[in-house]
């Protein structure tokens, strides 16, 4: 599915750990050690209570499908219509992603279906976190 034509993320000092995490096939989240709030995207402070006391931890990689659109317009990195999806991680945060190992149709993409993370190498330095239906063959 993936060709080297996706728009690539450029990590910043605040997000470097997240992208190093995906390279190591870990989905890293942050959690406030004062108020226990888990959040995403990465930043070195808690957006709920403003504490700078935060820790990084590995998420389970389990999620459910929150919403999506199926883009009909061509994109050089995708073959035919493709879903741009929002998934709710088991730990709470929501993120944008693509759904792989699954037909890109409304029938196959059922909201709230269980998903699990996959990591897809899109450049030398970057693996993107994508999601597949839970239980699908790796």
């Amino acid at each position: 599915m993936d060709k080297p034509t996706r728009s690539l993320p450029q990590p910043t000092p605040e997000t470097q750990h997240f992208w190093e995490g995906t390279q190591a096939e870990q989905l890293l989240l942050q959690r406030c050690t004062d108020c226990a709030h888990t959040y995403f995207p990465p930043r070195p402070f808690c957006p709920s209570c403003s504490s700078r006391s935060v820790e990084v931890y590995a998420a389970s990689g389990r999620a459910t499908l929150a919403s999506y659109v199926i883009n009909q317009r061509p994109h050089p990195a995708f073959d035919g219509p493709y879903a741009i999806a929002l998934v709710d991680l088991e730990e709470g945060p929501r993120m944008m992603t693509n759904i792989v190992e699954c037909e890109q149709t409304p029938e196959a993409l059922q909201l709230d279906m269980p998903l699990e993370v996959r990591f897809e190498q899109v450049s030398e330095d970057i693996k993107l976190p994508l999601f597949a239906p839970a239980g699908a063959d790796k």
């Binding site: 996706r6 728009s7 690539l8 993320p9 450029q10 990590p11 910043t12 997000t15 992208w19 995207p41 929150a66 919403s67 999506y68 659109v69 883009n71 317009r73 994109h75 990195a77 995708f78 493709y82 741009i84 999806a85 929002l86 993120m95 944008m96 992603t97 693509n98 909201l111 899109v122 970057i126 993107l128």
Partner: peptide, 29 residues
Amino acid sequence: RAPASLAGQFEMPFGPTGPPTMFTLPVLR
């Protein structure tokens, strides 16, 4: 959308091609 921005890092890699694929995302929910 700068590749180092939040959108550049956490949305654009997943293939949005403008508002019709972003503004519309919440509606199925």
